[in-house]
Amino acid sequence: MRLTCSNLSVSFGRRNCPIPALRNVSFTVGEGEFVAVIGPSGCGKTTLLRCLAGLERVHSGKVSYECGGGDRPPRILMVFQEHGVLPWLTVLENAALGLEAQGVPKRAREERARRLLARLGLGGRERAYPHQLSLGMKQRVAVARSFLCAPDVLLMDEPFAALDAQTRLKLQHELLALWQERRCNVVFVTHDVDEAILLSDRIIVLSAAPGTVTGEYSVGLPRPREAGMMLSQAFTSLKSALYAQLGFEGSQTCRTAEIMKG
């Protein structure tokens, strides 16, 4: 599966006074590639994912998926930042929801969900309702649901942004381990530079609104990735390059601050 996004533009607001959100965004995601998208908040990252998922109307440009054989429609699944689990379903029902939609019989889908949940440390919590879970557990349920569906493309919208640093690190590792086994294309939106480097093969940098691609970096770190790599030379030099690209440097920062004040 190969995902191509060409000259994508989207704007919101009224027709006579449109507010552009994305302008001429083009990139590709190759077979089994993990791509991170970073950019300042409000730059249209979420909008971009929603376009890729077909949840947003594209004004101009194109999103296309090339399937390598097989004629079923590609399975493009979102992992949402918030409201990613249904509060009235148990952990097990939530995790198995995608399989249920695919018509997998109850017993089989629950068995598969149970196994993956146990692996993610949610064994014994299958009958719990989301309001009894921590934020990290809820996101694990959402991740389990998406992987159970065997997606072709996984679109992740800052799934770990609201977690504390240690939980986030844990979930990042669990995600990588799952992805390592069941390779699929991932587009991972984040505003966290460390997270982008640690997880992805390639990083696409978006500018402030309207979002346009201002840079692409490939991450040269070997896999499997470990938290220890965050101290390596390769990691830190990429990190400073990304910070520079994002405009956290000298005059650039001041200018942004002035614009924000004005």
Binding site: A53, L55, R75, I76, L77, M78, F80, E82, H83, G84, L86, W88, L89, L97, G98, E100, A101, Q102, R145, C149
Partner: peptide, 28 residues
Amino acid sequence: QKDYVELAKNYGLTRLMRLRRVYLPAAV
């Protein structure tokens, strides 16, 4: 919540499943 409806659509729930899994319980 519109988000829940979108989630259900994204994961391919049919109309009937959405009614049973999203609309009805959300309204209770």
